[in-house]
Design a protein around this nucleic acid. Sequence first.
DNA 1: CAGCAAGTGTAATGTTGATTACACCCGAGA
DNA 2: TCTCGGGTGTAATCAACATTACACTTGCTG
Lengths: 226, 226
Amino acid sequence: MSAAHNKAIKEAEPQTRGDKRRAAFIAAARQVFLEQGYEAASMSEIVLRAGGSLSTLYSQFGDKQGLFISMLDARVRQITESMGVELSAHTPVQEGLRRIGEQFTSKLLEPESLEMYRLIVGLARKFPEIPREFQRRGPDKIRQALVDYLMDREEAGEIRLEDPYRTATLFLEMTRSGLVSRALLDEDVRPNAEEIRTSVNIVVDMFLHGIIRYQPDPDSTKTLKA
Amino acid sequence: MSAAHNKAIKEAEPQTRGDKRRAAFIAAARQVFLEQGYEAASMSEIVLRAGGSLSTLYSQFGDKQGLFISMLDARVRQITESMGVELSAHTPVQEGLRRIGEQFTSKLLEPESLEMYRLIVGLARKFPEIPREFQRRGPDKIRQALVDYLMDREEAGEIRLEDPYRTATLFLEMTRSGLVSRALLDEDVRPNAEEIRTSVNIVVDMFLHGIIRYQPDPDSTKTLKA
DNA sequence: CAGCAAGTGTAATGTTGATTACACCCGAGA
DNA sequence: TCTCGGGTGTAATCAACATTACACTTGCTG
């Protein structure tokens, strides 16, 4: 209810009442879709929370699917931006990775992010374009930023990369491990900040050093030689 | 259609016609649920494919949810077993991890596994118990097997583990990275066996050695000393 | 061969919710 | 003040199913 009142703040140009309505609808839609899922969400319920009328809702978004897509669009943009990859360029790699990992993981563990992700994944069949768009505008953006950072660190001589893209992917996946994928399946799993930090630290260490004290046959790799 | 005919083979004890019906219903349910998703799947459609009658379907499973759970139950058991964690105990760690990683990743990338996972994730809100059960009977089983293997390798002196459970989780997540989570969002991403092998090899190497040629401050770790 | 438990087919029943139709209202420019 | 264009409220429409009811068959078992 209260969320419906700060539209004027968000919009640079409060073009007219039409935009107010639109913003209110989207805010309510977000609530309802996240709470109930796509199918179960009812248009009337959304109108109920947004105020305004069913007719206006339809005239603005066409149909349920249109509303859903508009909502998702606004939301993904918002989340990705807020992740604002402050990639603290030139920070030493261990410290830099820890910061990125923590920020990334915390964001993904927020109940709303989890729910949004569930929604998107579950709808892959019905709207295949949605997950693709999401991938492109969310995760891919963040990965790119990490790639840039890693390459900066390589130039600084701190690390050597075979395949920056794959390495970045790997790192992001690793930080999600055990926390996000678990939480995705179990609503009650809710790591606190401390647990996140610990988990990320362990991941960063393994990312940089590998399994502790592994001694391969001298020929199979050249890593430990230098 | 053809799938409905080999029930006698699967069941050790073809107890009676009742079981044939049951098996046929579950097979059809699997098809329809995977194709259309939970909400969109219609009971009549399932009967249409399974043969038999709506009444029998209801008398066997109670309601839609009951049918769904039974189907999932059968399927998860089947997949997990088929993953038959042949953990080739006592295999050197690099080779062992490669095998496990490949098997795991391939299985998860099968279209049916992906679709099943999407279904489960999407239903976390509606039936919170389902994902939890799934976690326990699927992923957790496999992780446990990996933990056992890693500990075996530690006893053999090949590696040193701080936290076997977390390490195993990490490894499984890493192997999924870039392939499974991507494929989850984009149906058209379909790595072939060769790509899977390559990806897994890279992961195993990083898992064992870390980022190539990282040289930390001498005090922050002791790894590269020995 | 009778009899019953399980199976079958078809047709209600009932609800739910998207989508549309219609008649009315309010605020800004002529 | 008059006049729209967007808004509003309410009440249809209309389809889809889940779920149940009912009356009829079958296939064993004794």
